[in-house]
Write a protein that binds this DNA or RNA. Structure first.
Length: 1000
DNA sequence: ACAGAAGCTTA
DNA sequence: GTAAGCTTCTGTT
């Protein structure tokens, strides 16, 4: 699929019902088989096909697919068991037509797409998204309001029965809100047909008016108190949870793990004989004649083909009931039927919950999702742990029995034990899993005997060989119908990937906690989570493996102790999942987890495994140069100071500079020491003192040497010869990633000396590195969320944003502007992103605080929207204890209401920054999640290696550089879509070169 | 052996 | 003024 291509997606299931009710009944003459809907469907398809070949028609499909519901049970039932619960069985005379319409689709040589666990709408949404990313347009053939949320610049709808296009204006005309607000609107109004609850008493008109007033559902719910009408206000406050869950129900899934590629949808010329064969069978004489004429086929020579018809109510029809395809006995192509609730993508709500707990929830009837989640948490905390009950698995038969048990359960927690924190070097020592609370086992695989002797000790007896165990476990870990739960799965995924095993579908308790409680006190590691939610302290790693000098690898741990530790980890993980997963939907955070967190795990796992090449020689040469430079400076420093001392000791340095030498000391640190920060030393240097200058220079050189040129070679993996960083998904408060071991997000760039280190990051022979970075993304996000006209205009016009700010503030024309004026405006712009304070700005610009204060005042006068934005953010945070990104990520600030003014001010600044930094972080996450698919779809071999907050680094073969850059840029620039449509364009700069320095 | 402070690198 | 991670020094355990 490429730019200019046009994808037609026919909502097959929607059409069936609509045609059945709208068209006059029609039966086959020969036997009375009802075929009204089939006839309407065939006529519609034929008309679309004719248009496809009529280049004058304007819209010409190049790709075409018909999408159906698979079964009535989807992931939505797990979010909300009552979803579509009151839908009645389809009419008797419609049932045989379900299968016939699928056969009709095949007779038209069109792809017939359906997938268990997902509605047709979700598949349509996903394919529309893929087409959009590939640069193509989409027409959705349907008039269903549930699909209107997808309408946008590249997506239109077409109502085949009214022959009418539905674009943005039509959506607004009909519903009073633009497409992107349809989700919120439906969340409020609900849907009696699908049994989406919504908010009682709120219909489309009221919902549209409320959304107009408040902007979006979250704001509305947060500020519901402001609604004047008593009844309406109360209903919204009382039913906020219902609205949130409704939103999840109506929100279409854009990332269904579809198996068919857009390329498979390329429109084929009609196969006259095949189609006519089917039409004759249906006895559609008039359409048969028209098709024969158009395709130049002699209809008389073609025989009707036998068609399997599934009569009778026991079949339910493929859109209802068990999910077994019944329309076409000869076509077992659909996914195999799944057990109770588990889904292909790991979506699973309460399928494994103890029946008693589920009963409790239902028995009361009126439980809100929140109340239910709280009950589950309380119940989980009450259950006890019993280490003695854990099982050690030592033979294949037992292992197979456990695999069967896990398969039956459909959910399992899983954990790997290794001998290293580095997943790229770790050897697999054992695997543990849990199938129910308290029911857990450990499979020792490579425990060693012989403590620390040079031969490394032999394997302990009675362990299943790794290969044999993995052969049994692989089908389970890759079984689409068994949900694997892990704590920090990325680690285990890398380890397992190295053994040729994938893990899917999965949930990650660390990420669940991060999404639910990001920013609250306490980390998202397993031990704190266990304490918090289960009231249980797991066995500490250091208690069994020692620490420091006494540390032994996990392979040296006795198997009995290892079983208690490892099985407990799996047990804890499973119990945590049962507490945390229900809270997700209750708090309306499902989409953050499913769209921004979980899909990133395999993406990062691949990036980490790929690594990047680092040139040892370059680093070694630099290291030598730095050592020389530092040594020369050391001599000079010692001479100037008149004594030898440890230059790296701020304490000794302070004593010499401000004590013995009597230089004017600037500030003190909080421990009462003289500060010797670069700022202080620079100031002294500016007054003509020689020594401070040299200290600054020495620090730069030794910093570069110790942190980079000396340390990096030690990270080169002996096997891959590349450097593999580790990305933390749940480490920052704002949603950014962090990088460690080594940190590749703080490789120097500002100074010429530092930049040289970047030349050591290289592409392999015949390859290039591509660096693509967002330009000013946080300021653009600010312009968008704070709705600042001048900023938006400046970005739309592509003018220099800092010059514009300066010009606006100081009334100087942009042409011939002194660089100092622009520098100040730039500092203020950044200050705004950081939640500005006069103190900070004064520091940054080295100006008096009063002057900084005046600047800020002036800025707010020129851009009053900014002050409003900041005030609004603070107020929201104070009221709710958190702020949100435009994608709904929540960042908590529990201390925002502190009585300590400086603590409070800090939290206010942080919350202002978090909305912007967090939104930018979400955007690049979305880009990363889509990137591989986009590259694969474009048949490009480029792959992501690194992420540095607003920059992605790729490696690709030289010949594909030119083709890759536009794809990368397109994905990045459109990453916010369609979840959010930004009122400011995103801009990406991209360059290719042999090394990172030149590519950036 | 570990923890905190100080300092420096990045976006 | 926001968000991170790493190295060195230093004092405590």
């Amino acid at each position: 699929m490429k730019k200019g291509d046009h994808l037609f997606l026919v909502d097959g299931s929607g059409y069936i019902f609509r045609a059945y009710h709208a068209l006059p009944p029609l039966t086959r003459k020969s036997d009375g088989l009802p075929v009204g809907a089939v006839s309407g469907f065939c006529n519609m398809l034929w008309k679309l096909m004719l248009d496809a070949r009529n280049t004058d028609a304007g819209v010409v499909p190049t790709h075409f697919a018909v999408i159906f519901d698979y079964s009535s049970k989807t992931f939505r039932n797990e979010l909300y068991p009552e979803y579509k619960a009151n839908r009645s069985a389809p009419p008797e005379d419609l049932i045989p037509q379900f299968g016939l319409i699928r056969q009709a689709t095949k007779a038209f040589e069109l792809p017939c797409i359906e997938m268990e666990g997902f509605e047709a709408d979700d598949l349509i949404a996903t394919y529309a998204r893929l087409a959009c990313e590939a640069g193509g347009d989409t027409t959705i053939v349907s008039s269903d309001k549930d699909l209107m949320q997808l309408v946008g610049p590249t997506v239109t709808m077409y109502d085949p029965m009214k022959d009418r296009q539905i674009n943005i204006p039509e959506v607004i005309e009909k519903w009073g809100v633009p497409p992107e607000k349809m989700i919120d609107l439906q969340a409020l109004t609900g849907d009696s047909v699908d049994n989406v609850p919504g908010v009682p008493g709120i219909g489309p008109k009221t919902a549209a008016q409320l959304l107009e007033q408040f902007g979006d559902l979250d704001t509305l719910l947060a500020r519901a108190g402001e609604i004047k009408q008593d009844k309406r206000r109360q209903s919204i406050i009382d039913n906020a949870d219902k609205a949130r869950i409704s939103r999840e129900l109506v929100r279409l899934k854009l990332d269904v793990p579809v198996t068919d590629a857009l390329e498979d949808f390329v429109l084929q010329p009609p196969n006259g004989p095949k189609l006519i064969g089917f039409l004759k069978t249906m006895e559609f004489t008039s359409l048969t004649r028209r098709v024969a004429e158009a395709t130049g086929t002699e209809a008389g020579e073609i025989e009707a083909v036998p068609v399997a018809v599934q009569w009778g109510a026991d079949a339910h029809g493929p859109d209802v009931g068990s999910g077994t395809p019944v329309w076409s006995p000869s076509s077992p192509t659909g996914p195999s039927p799944r057990k109770n609730g588990e889904k292909e993508d790991g979506r699973n709500a309460d399928a494994s919950l103890a029946p008693s707990l589920r009963g409790e929830g239902k028995g009361e009837g009126q439980d809100t999702p929140t109340a239910l989640a709280n009950k589950l948490a309380a119940a989980a905390a009450a259950e006890k742990f019993d280490h003695a009950a854990y099982v050690t698995i030592r033979d294949l038969a037992t292992l197979k029995a456990w695999v069967a048990e896990a398969t039956e359960a459909g959910v399992m927690a899983f954990d790997t034990e290794t001998n290293s924190l580095d997943p790229m070097q770790a050897e697999l020592v054992g695997i543990s899993f849990a199938t129910a609370p308290g029911r857990a086992a450990y499979v020792p695989l490579a425990h060693k005997s012989g403590r620390g002797d040079l031969l490394g000790g032999g394997l302990v007896e009675n362990q299943i060989p790794v290969r044999d165990a993995l052969a049994v476990l692989k089908p389970l870990l890759e079984d689409g119908s068994v949900l694997k739960i892990a704590q920090n799965l990325k680690y285990d995924l890398v380890v397992m990937n190295r053994h040729g095993v994938d893990v899917r579908p999965f949930d990650d308790t660390m990420l669940l906690s991060y999404v639910l409680d990001g920013g609250t006190n306490g980390g998202h590691g397993m031990d704190p989570l266990s304490e918090k939610w289960l009231g249980h302290t797991p066995i500490a790693f250091k208690d069994i493996a020692g620490s420091g000098k006494s540390f032994v690898g996990f392979d040296q741990v006795e198997i009995d102790k290892a079983t208690a530790y490892a099985a407990e980890d799996a047990d804890v993980t499973l119990r945590l999942w049962r507490v945390l997963k229900p809270r997700l939907a209750a708090k309306g955070l499902t989409s953050v987890y499913e769209r921004l967190e979980r899909p990133l795990v395999p993406v990062l796992a691949e990036m980490e495994q790929r690594g990047i090449s680092v040139d040892r020689q370059i680093l070694s040469r630099l290291s030598g140069e730095l050592a020389q430079g530092a040594a020369r400076l050391e001599d000079e420093i010692n001479t100037l100071a008149g004594e030898r001392f440890n230059i790296g000791s701020p304490k000794q340095l302070g004593d010499i500079l401000f004590g013995r030498m009597g230089l004017p000391g600037g500030t003190k640190t909080k421990t009462g020491q003289w500060s010797t920060s670069a700022q202080v030393l620079e100031d002294l240097a500016a007054e003509g003192h020689e020594l401070p200058r040299k200290i600054v220079d020495w620090r730069q050189l030794t910093k570069l040497k110790s942190t980079y040129t000396d340390a990096l070679p030690g990270f080169i993996n002996p096997e891959t010869k590349r450097v593999h960083t580790s990305y933390a998904l749940a480490a920052t408060t704002t949603g950014r990633l962090s990088s460690s071991d080594p940190n590749l997000q703080n490789i120097p760039i500002r100074t010429a000396e530092g930049r040289k280190i970047r030349t050591a990051f290289i592409a392999d022979k015949g390859n290039k590195l591509i660096s693509a970075d967002y330009s000013q993304i946080e300021l653009r996000v600010l312009a968008h969320v704070a709705d600042i006209g001048q900023l938006k205009q400046a970005f739309a016009d592509g003018v220099d944003i800092h010059s514009m700010t300066a010009s606006e503030m100081f009334s100087v024309p942009v042409e011939g502007m002194p660089s100092e004026v622009r520098r100040r405006a730039k500092a203020i712009n950044f200050g705004i992103i950081y939640g500005i304070s006069a103190f900070g700005l004064a520091n940054q610009l080295s100006i008096p605080r009063e002057e900084a204060s005046d600047y800020i005042k002036k800025y707010f006068e020129r851009f009053p929207g900014i002050r409003a934005y900041m005030d609004e953010t603070k107020a929201f945070c104070r009221d709710n204890g958190y702020v949100e990104t435009i994608f709904g990520r929540r960042i908590h600030y529990p201390e925002i209401r502190s009585s300590n003014p400086s603590v409070r001010a800090f939290n206010e600044r942080a919350s202002i920054n978090a909305r912007l930094q967090g939104t930018a972080a979400d955007i690049i996450r979305r880009a990363m999640i889509r990137m591989d698919d986009a590259l694969v779809a474009a048949r490009l071999s480029a792959r992501m290696l690194l992420q540095v907050h607003d920059e992605l680094i790729f490696e690709t073969i030289e010949s594909e550089v030119e083709a890759t850059i536009p794809v990368v840029r397109h994905v990045m620039e459109n990453a916010a879509m369609p979840a959010a449509s930004m009122s400011v364009p995103l801009h990406v700069d991209a360059r290719a070169a042999d090394n990172w320095d030149e590519a950036h």
